[in-house]
Simulated assay, not measured.
Amino acid sequence: MTSEKQTEANRRNAQRSTGPRTAKGKAASSRNSLTHGVLSANAVSIYEKREIYQELLDQLIDEHDAQTAHEIALVERLANLFWRERRLAEAEKHMLTRYFDQAHDDKSYGSTQRYIPLQDQFLIGRYQGMLGRQVRDTLRDLREEQDRRMKTIEQAVVVTRDAER
């Protein structure tokens, strides 16, 4: 348990530590926790090519025939999720490469670890499951929104037809 003296010292230190003050410092600190980027607030990191993401987004908008702002927002969410799945696969590949390299370098010590540790495998699986569910839910929401739009169009056609009679 923390003593009262330690708690007071922590409070004093916290008053002096206000974090980054410049725009450059704030931008740098915003990337401190970026390891795999699956939970990143930014869809495209500074290390990725925005043009490739934009191409994916444009293709998805065309493929899903997004017409309204709501439909486009759902397709953008879908693009973000697919992008994060891609990023997760890349992170897994890099982890595996790192473990293979370490096992190769440590062979003099008898290391035969040529796999991603179980804890990391569980975390990767958890993120894959989370992203998969979000993709499924977003596709469902998009279909429902497009069905609503089509029903509205059909109702407008019926009203127009009835008015012409």
Rank of each mutant, 00 (worst) to 15 (best):
R16C: 08
R16T: 14
S17P: 03
S17N: 14
T18M: 09
T18N: 15
T18D: 13
T18A: 08
T18E: 06
T18R: 15
G19I: 06
G19V: 05
G19F: 11
P20I: 01
P20Q: 05
P20C: 07
P20N: 05
P20G: 10
P20F: 00
P20R: 06
R21D: 01
R21Q: 10
R21W: 01
R21S: 05
R21T: 05
T22N: 00
T22Y: 01
T22S: 14
T22H: 02
T22V: 03
T22K: 00
A23Y: 00
A23H: 01
A23T: 01
A23P: 03
A23Q: 06
K24E: 00
K24M: 00
K24C: 01
K24V: 02
K24H: 00
K24T: 02
G25D: 03
G25W: 04
G25S: 15
K26C: 04
K26E: 06
K26S: 09
K26V: 09
K26Q: 10
A27W: 07
A27I: 04
A27D: 08
A27C: 06
A27H: 08
A27V: 08
A27L: 13
A27Q: 11
A28H: 15
A28F: 02
A28Y: 03
A28N: 12
A28P: 01
A28T: 06
S29E: 11
S29D: 09
S29Q: 07
S29N: 10
S29K: 11
S30L: 05
S30F: 03
R31W: 01
R31S: 04
R31P: 02
R31N: 11
R31I: 02
N32M: 06
N32H: 10
N32G: 12
N32R: 14
N32A: 15
N32L: 14
N32K: 12
S33R: 08
S33P: 00
S33E: 09
S33G: 11
S33V: 06
L34I: 14
L34H: 06
L34V: 15
L34F: 13
L34K: 03
T35L: 11
T35F: 10
T35E: 14
T35G: 02
T35Y: 15
T35K: 03
H36Q: 11
H36L: 11
H36D: 15
H36N: 13
H36G: 10
G37T: 01
G37P: 00
G37F: 00
V38Q: 04
V38W: 04
V38R: 07
V38K: 04
V38I: 14
V38Y: 04
V38C: 08
V38D: 03
L39W: 05
L39C: 03
L39S: 10
L39M: 11
L39A: 12
S40N: 15
S40C: 14
S40P: 10
S40A: 14
S40F: 12
S40M: 08
A41Y: 13
A41V: 15
A41R: 11
N42D: 12
N42Y: 00
N42S: 07
N42C: 02
N42Q: 07
N42G: 00
N42K: 07
A43L: 11
A43E: 06
A43I: 11
A43Q: 07
A43G: 07
V44Q: 05
I46P: 04
I46G: 05
